[in-house]
Write a protein that binds this DNA or RNA. Structure first.
Lengths: 231, 231
DNA sequence: AAAATAGTGTCTGTTAGACAATATCCG
DNA sequence: CGGATATTGTCTAACAGACACTATTTT
């Protein structure tokens, strides 16, 4: 056990909200240290920031080791915000990131890994819960004016998949024809396979990185209807 | 001069983009260490994060001491993002904040203080310049869907002042009647003094903290006209 | 032929945006 | 009374949002 020098610098950590999507559900990746007991303490994957490395490189390294998540598995990364904790005269800061991955996959690593639907999360620390909530709020907001949803989907998808993801994230249902009309009018999709009979047309986003829409989707007023079918 | 322990934690700093507004212009506060020479090195006000304190409290303390900025002078605070720098095997991180203050005031403190119109900034480090640009972009975006502009204005203002600030920040000019109609329709203003003859009515925001609009202003397409008069 | 899924067009109400005239105070 | 500044309404175009039917394939 270490004693911490009072004149040390604050401790710096990095944490990730790793989101995936599959079949109408958003999943969050959590980790728990391997422990003999059956009292599992789930938390956001995190890592100390190592001297000479950035928070992102420290985190990436840790994620590979602990939960087997490789860089290629990550389709999108974004800094969220930095939280601080002052405890026992010690300051620690944590730089939080949003990670997104295409499709819901399980990984293997040194730590225990869990993939939880975001409406059925296990008990988390207040901090972790707040960070996860913030990430989902931002994803929601950003879905209305950017192509961020594409990073949760396969490269090619049909408009039904896209709409379902859109509806899941924004928690609002939209008319199919209006959604298609709007989405196509944004001029960010390209058709990669034409529709044939009962198979839908497939599309992909023209630009592989995040694109901001010229004309955002309108956010529904507070008391809007939600036709989402119960799962 | 200190030697830094290789096994030390990363260094942590905090920096502030302090914005003020007066009469159609946005001002940024910069500091420079008092120096005998006439080669002045302007930079964003910043502070190390002290053990046992948060970045915000460290920064506030530093701002009071260095440039005489008291907490009461600050109408709005928001975290921007955290930058990192890896140099000589040392990692340092800097948590950046946006600060806003009502009206353009000069302060006095230990350091040299400068209030620069944002279109005539002195030479800054690439990092500082990027942070300032980011802050202004965010202010621009947020002005379209929130009451953030109110923190640059006196508590009470008339619609002309509000519109001028709006136009300055968003770099777009809008029709006066349409602006008033839109702004009043948002239902976030209260009239604090009725118009009398040639004196305009005064308003203030109903809610003193940041309010998000139900119906945001529309962002103009790239090639939009700008009727801003040259200053 | 019935069932499932894909695709598409019109109408209406709301909002954004262009635009001009009138009243009051002051000198 | 002229000048400056304040306030206000209408018309049009674009967009959002509601809504129903037809074509193809599969079983």
């Amino acid at each position: 056990m270490y004693t911490i020098d009072m004149y040390d610098n604050p401790q710096l950590h990095a944490a990730a909200v790793i989101l995936q999507y599959s079949d109408g559900k958003i999943y969050l990746t959590l980790t728990a240290k391997q422990s003999g007991g059956n009292n599992i303490n789930w938390q956001l994957p995190s890592s100390p920031v190592f001297q000479g490395h950035t928070s992102l490189s420290s985190l990436s390294h840790q994620l590979k080791q602990a939960i087997g998540l490789k860089d290629d598995d990550v389709s999108y990364r974004e800094q969220l915000y930095t939280t601080e904790l002052v405890q026992d005269g010690q300051t620690s800061a944590q730089i939080c990131y949003l990670f997104m991955s295409r499709g819901a996959k399980w990984h293997k690593g040194e730590d225990q890994v869990g993939l939880f639907p975001i409406d059925r999360l296990p008990k988390l620390s207040d901090d972790d819960a707040a960070i996860a909530r913030y990430a989902l709020d931002r994803l929601h907001a950003k879905t209305l004016y950017s192509s961020i949803v594409s990073f949760l989907l396969p490269i090619a998808f049909d408009l039904n998949d896209l709409q379902q993801a859109f509806e899941t994230i924004t928690r609002q249902s939209v008319d199919r024809r209006n959604f298609r009309k709007k989405m196509l009018s944004l001029n960010v999709l390209q058709e990669t396979r034409v529709a044939t009979g009962t198979k839908p047309a497939e599309y992909s986003f023209k630009h592989p990185s995040l694109v901001l829409f010229d004309a955002p989707f309108k956010q529904l007023p507070p008391g809007a209807k939600s036709n989402l079918r119960a799962s």
